[in-house]
Design a protein around this nucleic acid. Structure first.
Lengths: 416, 416
DNA sequence: CAATTTCGTATTCTTCGTAAACAAACTCGA
DNA sequence: TCGAGTTTGTTTACGAAGAATACGAAATTG
């Protein structure tokens, strides 16, 4: 297989990226942006339209001198992606299109955590198949799954204390039972959340995503690239040891759900606890708890920001609903802690609320459609035939070490 | 300028990378490794030998069946790089070759810190020119400078408290006064140190470099890529707030030179303080100080490791000489703190001792010789003519915010 | 309506990678 | 010792991709 073929592919991908950034462009626009001839773009666009990824729209370009270019845009239905979030209480799936729009949803309320992962597989696939049924199979790229816990580079769940899973090769299992042409990707929920945020921006960002749920997870994008670490375990901000008002411990214990022991009753979901907190906002007790929470969170964020220097910090997860009520305090704490000429990152709420993880899981597959072909990639031996095939799933490789964590229920450890 | 030209260039770079990894390869070896024809490699190698970057060596390949391939290797003298470290007490420069060997050294003992950066420029250039004089000008790629402090993406020194510099556009100044064909790169000293470590490895690593000097700096490589952050300020591990034995504060205050207040007398260099500590290793006082130091450092490292999941942690800087005497304790602490199934990163001393920053500053330029041409790069307009030109300096862009730090001497702030 | 500008495509040319062929250099076995 | 077999590096013919140029189409401007 010739290498020159990759040039075409590269130009096509560049065109897709440009179209993702601006709604509508003419061939000439893209030629100027990429510094190649209009003819070259013509070929690339022809391939993309043939693949159904790009459409010509009648939308007229703003009136200028000369012959108007024909406006091109992404075909939202050109490629579709299923994203599923494995939560403690439900399996929630979305069907995402090329424009990051949710086309369909589907939820299976599992009710409780701690179920054997093997037993959950069919239910996960049922959600995915339900979504897949609503679309053209040929346009369906694959299935992304977000799991709360440590996920290795090959999509194996190394340790998910909230689910009670250990050493479960979820991605491999799914690859086995899913339709062969589906691309499968399993990743950490914070990674997924960050991927959603990244996909929504056209500029490559440097951002820190913090997922405030029962635990505190994080994911970091540097110049638009996910930092995954040697084993894929990067982003365990919750296990950072911090000291707040003399009490030292993991951030999770103070800034996670455990930081509100009174509100988070046994058997209650985090969302319910947050609701009760929001209902009692004017009580001194809640205020005191929120103050402490903000302080702990600020220390954790400042520590991470010194290390990573993000542009923006994005808060997600159920607890992030509390953020608007401590925004002032939190920003103040953060600014105080960030001395040293370090620019203080801005704080935001996650763009996608509850669905962030599911959308992000799908967005990771979507990113593959825009990835430039890696010319040094040795994996091009199978020679992907259609231009509709994404370039490498964003997460791979490596082995899994031994886990050792406290969970509150039965543990399903598949390592024997 | 044609895009197809980039293919040749890419193949050439791939060949260089392969040769960097293994000492000697034949054309056929490289063809197999890259999955292209021997003919293609033949052309690429011809270009590289013409550029003087690759040599045929008489070294016989281990006897095998068939005609033996001619062994190719990098020409160490094919490209040379100057690296300079700006320290509080000296300007130390090295001349580095393609094989990461130091060909020449040159030091200007400035004696004391806090000198006007404008006054230091000629002395820096004198060191560089002295090294440049010892080599073929045409083979000299450029000058890299490592500075202890915050350095922006355009090589501007935003805040270097140890030098008393603020907002000094060092890279721009050097570009103005240095020979036009020199590539100039200014970066943080920890970044430089990490670059040296990276260049010495053939595999892309995920490592955390920690520079233990007066302050505590760090740099992180994820899959072989430097994490620089939004403004280039990533890696301020020293400003992470940690709590050790009930005392909370920035890591720097406990794990930096300030962690040994008794040994680090006024006017003494950190190296001298370390020497006195090493001389009094058997005193209980020193032991207690070392214990506390190890504990503080372990907490900082564990926090960073949870966030970044590095394979290896590499310790450098003068204080790292103390590491062998606390290695056991430190590793133990670290293993204890790294629960959660997170693989505990291994600990190492930096490969290059005192010269690490200078070597690394040069290594950053060297990395440009092996960088794959960015096919999406718009900066290819000037159309680099010779295959000897490196691809993009590793550090660029962005603006500088306001600094605010305590320094012990005069401040030279160029922002007015 | 003519001149001008810009767009998209068609044509021709150059460059590059591949496949196939070939000579060179070496090992192995008779 | 010598020929068969193998591997290497280069050469030649061919196909594929981008660039340069040209050309017709479609709009604005005067």
């Amino acid at each position: 297989m010739t290498t020159t073929r990759l040039l075409r592919r590269m130009h096509a991908r560049h065109c897709l990226r440009l179209l993702q950034g601006s709604q509508t462009l003419s061939r000439a626009d893209m030629a100027r942006a990429l510094g190649v001839t209009r003819a070259t773009i013509g070929y690339a666009v022809a391939e993309l339209t043939a693949a159904g990824l790009v459409l010509e729209t009648p939308s007229p370009t703003p009136t200028r001198l000369g012959r108007p270019g024909v406006a091109l845009r992404l075909n939202p239905q050109g490629a579709l992606f299923i994203g599923v979030e494995m939560d403690t209480r439900a399996i929630s799936g979305v069907l995402l299109d090329l424009n990051m729009q949710v086309v369909a949803r589907r939820v299976d309320p599992t009710g409780a955590a701690f179920q054997d992962p093997q037993a959950m597989l069919p239910r996960l696939m049922a959600v995915a198949q339900g979504l897949a049924a609503q679309t053209d199979q040929a346009r369906l790229i694959g299935l992304g799954v977000a799991v709360p816990g440590l996920v290795g580079r090959q999509g194996q769940v190394v340790n998910a204390p909230l689910l009670g899973w250990r050493n479960f090769a979820l991605q491999a299992e799914l690859q086995r039972i899913a339709p062969a042409h589906w691309q499968i990707d399993v990743c950490n929920d914070a990674f997924a959340f960050a991927s959603a945020e990244l996909a929504a921006e056209s500029e490559p960002q440097s951002l820190l995503m913090v997922l405030l749920a029962e635990g505190v997870g994080s994911a970091h994008l540097d110049a638009g690239r996910m930092i995954s670490g040697a084993h894929g375990f990067a982003g365990e901000l919750g296990h950072m040891v911090v000291s707040v008002r003399g009490r030292a411990g993991p951030l999770e214990a103070m800034a996670g759900a455990a930081g509100f022991p009174d509100a988070m009753g046994a058997g209650l979901s985090v969302a319910q606890g947050v609701a009760s907190l929001l209902a009692s906002l004017d009580t001194p007790k809640t205020q005191a708890a929120l103050d402490l929470w903000a302080e702990a969170l600020a220390i954790g964020l400042a520590n991470a920001a010194h290390l990573l220097d993000p542009d923006r910090i994005v808060l997600g997860g159920p607890l992030s609903a509390l953020y608007p009520h401590v925004a002032g305090t939190l920003k103040e704490h953060l600014a105080t802690l960030m001395l040293q000429g370090h620019a203080t990152p801005s704080l935001h709420l996650a763009r996608y609320g509850n669905e962030g993880a599911a959308i992000g899981a799908a967005a990771r597959l979507r990113a593959g459609m825009f990835a430039l072909p890696d010319l040094g990639d040795k994996s091009r031996k199978p020679a992907p035939p259609s231009p509709l095939s994404p370039d490498r799933a964003p997460c791979q490789t490596d082995i899994s070490p031994h886990p050792a964590t406290l969970a509150k229920g039965p543990i399903y450890d598949q390592q024997t």
